[in-house]
Design a protein around this nucleic acid. Structure first.
Length: 289
DNA sequence: ATCTGTCCCTGGACGC
DNA sequence: TGCGTCCAGGGACAGA
């Protein structure tokens, strides 16, 4: 489940690989839930262009093209952006074996929705997404999309003032507030749980019940957790891999996420799991108040 | 304006 | 072994 750190790592690594290379071929799958821009149009818009820069806002990747249009990509739950050199069993359907054993090229399968070739015959790029919660959208020059305009400040840059302002008038659980992309963009289930643990705040606390001090601490903890995760290449749990097929390592540093019924790393109390806003939340009942 | 519940999708876990 | 059922989750949307 790619969140801000995973998307940022993909952004950085892809930037080093695909910028300023002319797109010579575009292969698209049949229209499906992931295509906000229809496959044929997407192909037409990308063919012959080159990417000048990759930006990110929250969990969205923004690929700026040389005609001032833009390709918007969201990885959803299971989206992957990988080069044709990527090797990892996570890139294949469970029924299949990785072609050519461990050292093959990536072979597009039924979950590969977009593939790009580049002029210099270096690595190609593939977008793969089994559950199709990811999104592909092409925007002409200057065009806006509510998906992007509705986003709050990028979570790496959230300030205590902004978080305080948002929480003051919200009666929802603080965990649900952190997941609200209109408040701060990029935090998902993993990093919301990890941030709240670090800040020692219980996820079920009402947002407007937080003290000024707590909001300040939470702000710092969100930023700290995100930076640590980026430094470790993000978290690989089910599907997330780097563009070259390698894996993130932050999953080994989780304090609470996915650790229900395991002892808290701080106090040994068993980590609990509750459902907040249809999402599972993990916390230490002793450390987090 | 804010909040809650439902839905999209598919592989994996689990029970029988 | 093989089937059915449930669950995970980001975000859009409908309805309260």
């Amino acid at each position: 489940m790619p969140e801000l750190p995973e998307v940022e790592v993909v952004r950085r690594r892809l930037s080093a690989l695909i910028l300023d290379r002319a797109i010579t071929e575009v292969r698209v799958s049949r229209a499906n839930y992931a295509f906000l821009t229809l496959p044929a149009q997407l192909r037409r818009r990308l063919l012959g262009r080159r990417f000048l820069e990759i930006k990110r806002h929250g969990k969205y990747l923004l690929f700026d093209l040389d005609d001032a249009s833009r390709l918007v990509v969201h990885l959803g739950m299971t989206g992957q952006l990988i080069t044709s050199h990527a090797v990892n069993p996570r890139l294949y359907h469970s029924r299949e074996k990785a072609p050519n054993g461990a050292r093959g090229e990536f072979v597009p399968d039924e979950h590969t929705h977009l593939s790009l070739d580049f002029a210099d015959r270096g690595a190609g790029l593939h977008f793969r997404d089994t559950r199709k919660f990811g999104k592909l959208l092409w925007l002409p020059e200057g065009a806006e999309d509510p998906r992007l305009t509705r986003l709050g400040v990028d979570a790496r840059e959230i300030t205590a003032t902004q978080l305080a302002e948002a929480s003051a008038r919200r009666g929802i659980a603080v965990k649900a507030l952190l997941l609200d992309q209109a408040v701060l963009a990029g935090v998902g289930n993993i990093y919301a749980d990890e941030s709240l643990f670090l800040a020692r705040i219980a996820p079920l606390r009402k947002a407007h019940s937080l003290t000024e001090r707590e909001v300040k601490v939470l702000t710092q903890c969100i930023r700290r957790v995100l930076e640590r995760a980026i430094a470790k290449g993000g978290s690989t749990i089910d599907d997330y891999v780097h563009p070259d097929g390698s894996e993130g390592q932050f999953q080994h540093s989780f304090s609470v996420y996915g650790r229900d019924e395991k002892p808290c790393r701080r106090c040994c109390t068993l980590i609990k799991r509750v459902v907040i806003g249809q999402r599972s939340s993990h916390f230490c009942p002793n450390c987090q108040r």
